[in-house]
Design a binder for these strands. Structure first.
Length: 918
RNA sequence: GCCCUGAUGGUGGAAUUGGUAGACACGCAGGACUUAAAAUCCUGUAAUCAUUGCGAUUGUACGGGUUCAAGUCCCGUUCGGGGCACCA
């Protein structure tokens, strides 16, 4: 009986839909398990064979957990706001909603073919009003909250107002960007607008003039994680610095909690490390340096307060507010000139061109410990946004300061014994201090401690922690995103009442910015409240909609809340999250922040959203090449190309089979190859190959639909998992797929004799038991550790064993079907029913294994001599050590190999190995 | 520059606490079936030498070390992938 995968797969996919097999409800009688995939942005190109990798991995786990009796939530949806649809709209006029809907339909069609156990009744789309209502709602909550550093959580803004009314802001310990200090009476004397302006500097969602990364090509501001090396991650367009009035989220207030939370979650070390780098905690001290002849103190931040005796100058960031104050009249022209020069440089130039530049301000500062005078410089190697925008420079022990000192001929004082600073600085935190007054003779570590204590005691400064993590800029000058629930009155932002949500995205006549340079929403008619107050023209960024979607899946149709208390209490958080590593510093930081904020408000019960996370590796493409002899239309086969001067040309992998080119298909592929001639080897044209990114331009894209058509979804699922460990990147090579396909055919064949379904009800033999229990043990262990590739090898081994045993035993085969079901659900569902079961194989209980079937009566001992294995000896498993040794030594081959030499030592590891040393 | 990862046959990969390196596949070669092809099945397949059989030597990026025994542990080096990067 042939394995007709196409019929089988269609049949059961239909059955699963009709029987709502994958619909899941909260059920307090069962333990829950939440398996989540990072939802896709539905791009126009559709899915290639790399996309489903993670989905298959999570699908197997979800099915496995279900078979173990868990109530499994395994939803899917679409991150459907985003730039590509909008760029396409600008080019073609096609509304992004139309493109997006079309792309979603295509994705869904492709996903459906693979047989996932998604509960589609819980689907979310970030661009739908009933979804983004809750994105807007969370934003309002953030606007109405501030971060209290003492309580270490977000609190209602009303509590802050109460504090201001009582004491002003002098004793308030809250995250802020407020530049004024005021008393209670000052507060009371302020106008409403002034009060609002101050509160804005404390809100978690705040509007401020911020130095932003603006990308002219995209017409849009970008967040830090959307830029890499001075260009936009999407598109690679240049980015420049601008000051713009933008919404931001005070993510930085959560820096420490985001860092601490990493210890509680089961993520890879690499990913945790990436997040740690991104958060960038550094512990140090803030110190005041007095400016000579002025009533002014400059605050600096340093992590090396042990090096204070080696400070020979100070540097201010060009943007520092102190610059104007310390610039003397004689230096004003030079400073202005430098500032202008800095302003002209783009971020990219600054990164790529690291010449030393700077200018003397004319003023001197006093080192608070040595009381020496040191010059104050201005240079763009000091960043305004980090620490205090001012540093104490220790050229002997900081390479950047060293370069600056050399360039401006400033003194360099070594502080560590034996450190040679004639050619470069000594940055390492090790050695014994010298030239350092009270720190002399201490190790660097001791000196750090002592110096901190000293600074605190003498009131010179305070111990402080700084973070690299910045607030997230939340405004985008784009159309295809969530509208802000904000209107403006008297120039100040106000939130819509929650009852007015969602504020729906309006239609616009043009997706480009307006003539006056306003964002596209400037084209919308009547984009204002019924009272006539204008709405915000920016929209939210891509990460807005993806920050809390995992919560919405718990209760997707609730119109009273983002998620009900009951649903949230039941599902709690995501137990297994599978997705790509490219979201390490974006989505995975923002959603943790967003979740912690909702946790502070008591809306969710867990403060970390994703308990375990697996990063699936990328599927790379395997490209094929043909070699054209230069200036001809003749192509030479791989093995012969060394004799010619050739140009390699990418050729569509779909017309190459096992690296042999289909010549006729190649001629038909493109008009210019129609008359191509070939130099063959053994009558064949052999192509070269390389592993590259899977992309259209390399002609190496493989579409899962084609694989499903040719081999079936179960084969595709199995093969993707068989390729190797999920976390690892690996090339896709369709030629290997025959192996798993053969396995499924063989597996199918095990249930038939001729065309008849043929299994027998009987007690399994010991050998059958051993084979199947070995399989159950292996697969159970492998699934728990996501080593699916080795599970599949185990299935193949078991199928081979049972075939050679001619096993037709119903009990054994049912167990096989049950453990294979998560991997290959269609074929297993069919066989499960043929075996006489009713209901879905999805609910077939995961079998347990019994060690008693696995015990071996004998062990094949490798007998090694000086570590080299010479032969094996089959001995009873329960033979004790001394007897094993005796038997091994008495063996003919041993005697021959020893050749009369005395043994020095004999090592016997029971059950494992014998090693004879002579 | 700093941090994290990884390197095993022609290819993808396996080896769970140090215990027969190369499981399972792909590919390749030979054979069976067939008029032929496809499909299927069987055998071989790390390298070198030997080959009538027995075998021997080398081998997990490279160089050292620990151990009866190292892909696995330790030290150093090279190369690939990822992250951070004038972050004081």
């Amino acid at each position: 009986m042939d394995y007709k995968f196409s019929e089988i797969e269609k049949k059961w996919q239909k059955y699963w839909v009709e029987n709502a097999t994958y619909k899941v409800k909260e059920d307090s009688s069962k333990k829950k398990f939440y398996v989540l995939d990072m939802f896709p942005y539905p791009s126009g190109a559709g899915l290639h064979v790399g996309h489903p990798l993670g989905y298959i991995a999570s699908d197997i786990f979800a099915r496995y957990k279900r078979q173990q009796g868990f109530n499994v939530l395994h939803p899917m949806g679409y991150d459907s706001y985003g730039l590509p649809a909008e760029q396409y709209a600008i080019q073609t006029g096609q509304h992004p909603a139309v493109t997006t809907a079309k792309n979603i339909a295509r994705y869904r069609e492709q996903l459906d073919k693979i047989g996932f156990c998604f509960d589609w009744s819980r689907e979310v789309r970030t661009c739908e009003p009933n979804y983004y209502k809750w994105t807007q709602w969370a934003f309002i909550k953030m606007f109405n909250s501030y971060y209290d550093n003492d309580a270490n959580k977000a609190l209602p803004i009303e509590e802050l107002i109460a504090k201001f009314e009582k004491d002003g802001n002098t004793n308030v310990n809250a995250a802020n960007n407020c530049t004024v200090k005021f008393s209670a009476s000052d507060w009371k004397s302020y106008s409403e607008k002034e009060k609002e302006q101050i509160l804005l500097a404390y809100r978690i969602a705040y509007l401020a003039d911020t130095k932003v990364n603006f990308c002219p090509a995209l017409g849009c501001v970008l967040a830090n994680d959307e830029i890499s090396e001075g260009v936009s991650v999407r598109g690679g367009y240049p980015v420049e610095q601008r000051v713009m009035r933008q919404w931001s989220l005070r993510v930085s207030a959560y820096a420490q909690r985001l860092l601490d939370g990493l210890d509680k979650i089961d993520w890879s070390d690499a990913l945790k490390e990436t997040q740690k780098n991104w958060i960038g905690r550094s512990e140090g001290a803030e110190m005041d340096f007095a400016v000579k002849g002025q009533d002014l103190k400059l605050k600096i931040f340093t992590t090396r307060c042990d090096t204070i005796h080696g400070v020979t100058f100070m540097v201010l960031a060009p943007e520092s507010e102190y610059v104007a104050k310390v610039t003397t009249a004689d230096q004003k022209a030079a400073v202005d000139d430098y500032l202008a020069q800095v302003k002209r440089r783009t971020e990219r130039e600054r990164i790529s061109d690291r010449r030393v530049s700077g200018v003397f301000s004319g003023s001197y500062a006093i080192n608070p410990i040595t009381e020496k005078e040191i010059p104050i410089y201005i240079s763009d190697y000091v960043l305004a946004g980090y620490g205090t925008g001012a540093i104490m420079a220790v050229p002997a022990h900081d390479s950047r300061d060293y370069a600056f000192a050399k360039h401006f001929n400033l003194p360099i004082i070594p502080l560590i014994e034996g450190a040679d600073v004639s050619e470069e600085s000594f940055d390492a935190k090790e050695g014994i201090m010298m030239n350092s007054g009270f720190l002399n003779g201490l190790t660097v570590k001791e000196a750090l401690k002592t110096a901190k204590k000293y600074i605190k005691e003498k009131g010179i400064g305070e111990v402080k922690v700084n973070y690299r993590l910045r607030d997230a800029i939340f405004s985008r000058q784009r159309y295809w995103g969530e509208p802000f629930p904000v209107y403006y009155k008297d120039g100040m932002p106000h939130m819509l009442d929650e009852s007015k949500l969602p504020l729906e995205l309006p239609e616009v006549s043009d997706f480009k910015p307006t003539e006056s340079g306003e964002p596209p929403l400037g084209h919308a008619e009547n984009w204002c409240t019924p009272e006539g107050y204008p709405y915000e023209l920016n929209t939210m960024p891509g990460f807005a909609g993806s920050s809390a979607y995992y919560l919405r899946y718990m209760d997707p149709t609730n119109d009273k809340a983002l998620v009900s208390k009951e649903a949230n209490q039941y599902w709690k958080s995501v137990d297994l999250y599978v997705g790509g590593t490219e979201h390490a510093t974006g989505h995975l930081i923002y959603s943790r922040f967003w979740n912690k904020f909702l946790f502070d408000l008591g809306i969710v019960c867990e403060d970390e959203p994703f308990r375990k996370l697996i990063n699936q590796g990328m599927i790379q493409g395997r490209s094929n090449f043909v070699y054209r002899i230069k200036d001809t239309n003749t192509f030479v086969s791989l093995g012969l190309k060394k004799d010619y001067d050739v140009t390699p040309i990418h050729v569509d992998v779909n017309i190459v089979n096992n690296d042999i080119l289909d010549i006729e298909a190649f001629k038909a592929w493109r008009p210019e190859f129609e008359t191509a001639e070939f130099i063959l080897e053994d009558g064949k044209y052999v192509c070269g190959w390389a592993v590259e990114k899977m992309s259209k331009s390399m002609f190496n894209v493989v579409n899962p639909d084609d694989i499903v058509d040719k081999y079936g979804a179960d084969t595709l699922r199995l093969y993707e998992m068989f390729l190797g460990p999920i976390e690892q990147s690996k090339p896709w090579d369709t030629k290997g797929i025959d192996g798993v396909n053969r396995f499924l055919k063989k597996f199918w064949g095990m249930f038939f004799t001729g065309d008849n379904f043929d299994v027998v009800k009987a007690e399994p033999t010991a050998e059958e038991q051993k084979s199947i229990h070995k399989l159950i043990k292996k697969v159970t262990g492998d699934v728990e550790t996501f080593s699916y590739n080795t599970s599949i090898a185990a299935f193949m081994i078991c199928a081979n064993e049972l075939t050679s045993l001619k096993c037709k035993n119903a009990e054994v085969l049912t167990k096989f079907v049950t453990v294979l079901a998560p991997f290959a659900p269609h074929i297993c569902e069919e066989l499960y029913h043929l075996l006489g079961n009713t209901g879905s194989v999805c609910d077939a209980q995961w079998p347990s294994y019994d060690e008693k079937f696995l015990v071996e009566s004998s062990v094949k001992y490798p007998i090694s001599f000086n570590g080299k294995v010479r032969f094996t000896l089959e001995l009873p498993a329960d033979m004790d050590k001394a007897d094993v040794e005796k038997t091994a030594l008495a063996n003919d081959q041993t005697i021959k190999l020893l050749d009369g030499k005395p043994t020095k030592k004999v090592i016997v590891v029971p059950g494992k190995i014998v090693n004879i040393v002579f």
